[in-house]
Nucleic acid binder design. Sequence first.
DNA 1: CCAAAAGTGTTCATAATACACCCATGC
DNA 2: GCATGGGTGTATTATGAACACTTTTGG
Lengths: 248, 248
Amino acid sequence: MNEPSREHDFLQEYDVSKYERPSVTADIIIFTVDEKKRLSLLLIRRGGYPYKDRWALPGGFLNAGKESADTAAARELFEETGIKNAYLKQLYTFSRPDRDPRTHVISIAYTALIPRGKLQFRAGDDARDARLFAIYFQDGTLSLVSDSLTLSEKELAFDHAEIIKTAILRLRGRIDYEPDAFELLESKTAFTIFELKQIFETIKDTSMDTANFRKMFFRNYVNTGIASSLGQTRRDKGRRAAALYCMN
Amino acid sequence: MNEPSREHDFLQEYDVSKYERPSVTADIIIFTVDEKKRLSLLLIRRGGYPYKDRWALPGGFLNAGKESADTAAARELFEETGIKNAYLKQLYTFSRPDRDPRTHVISIAYTALIPRGKLQFRAGDDARDARLFAIYFQDGTLSLVSDSLTLSEKELAFDHAEIIKTAILRLRGRIDYEPDAFELLESKTAFTIFELKQIFETIKDTSMDTANFRKMFFRNYVNTGIASSLGQTRRDKGRRAAALYCMN
DNA sequence: CCAAAAGTGTTCATAATACACCCATGC
DNA sequence: GCATGGGTGTATTATGAACACTTTTGG
């Protein structure tokens, strides 16, 4: 076996610095279920070019050499919402060289699931406008609604419409066999079966049968130890007291 | 609404060039089922530092500003194996800042599924040694075997053991509801049910019941139009002729 | 009473799983 | 004969979906 030459080593090293490097951002799709039980996400109005005044996903440049994309995403989520230790999963990496007009910017996208009650953000602020948009996604077409403001796919900055659609499809695909739905409960330690059912219905955008949902809940979650009964009930106005459950 | 100042725009632009940029590679887990029906993958022995002489995943630096990670992965796959238009899916992005001792190198990992008969590579070459390693993955521990050479996780370059384990788990998770298994057939246009069953058994590392596998095959693939009967049979030595099917 | 949620029961079709058994071919 | 693959049938149980019905509570 030949001992590789010093020159060979040098070339190997040289390659690393020779190549142009792309910029890398971590962008986050922050999903929640709003007051009207609609699947929603947080968007930020851009203050600068490119796509000035357009709505975009929260995110920012990775601190190269100092943090992983996971850390960058967690940092951005904290800066945007004040939330630490959230449910944050890598979604997909988007890397078309023309997706940002400035330079090649690769986006490592993350999905965060945050209950509405824990989600606070700078809204109506002059410098940085942040808003929750309800998601309408049918027949492959996305539109986003916040009060009187409706956005079509084309109005979003960069390729963020594509990223959001990817995130919705992944969320829908995961909901039946991953414990994602629990992350959107206002309280993981005291919830009713109906509250969990509402989250499933919101994400899948269908209505589900009560009896069948209960059976599924006991089979998939209680019997497997993912959730368990608190042995307590909660009384709400206008209806029968409901049994409470908690995640383990 | 205030018109953002020029200074603000400048700062926005400035940020892009101010940040250190990481290097980005596309690395590929090339899976195949070898002659002995073992799940295998292709590794390259590194010729230069770091991890000189260690075994690593094929891959290379992204041509920033000119290609997407998908394109870079396809290019690397072609350079390594001569294969174009292969089944290539993005797996996950690995970005720990210390995963490469030189500098921050982010790896966008891809999985390729190639039938053994179509997989050729430079083997035994002095400058660049490439080999197929059979995968043994049990109880969360990975080991790779090529003839008399056995590699433990720690002997692999970079964090490639972690990447490989992620790829195996994803492949196993996808096999039942994605048409991945078909990609590993020697011929997608003329295969027997038994050949497909062997690929399932290889990936899931279990043995499956013949009758039940047939029922699943007709339900999930033939009845849904994913595969269909060729109306022909193939005679092999020592056994009854088998009906042939093809993918659509 | 009514609306809305909480909760129980039954039925039917389809799945997954286990297993017993026969067919065809070459050594 | 026997090993290997090719192929059929049957029984059991689990799951998914549809639906009918009762209970509790506030307005």
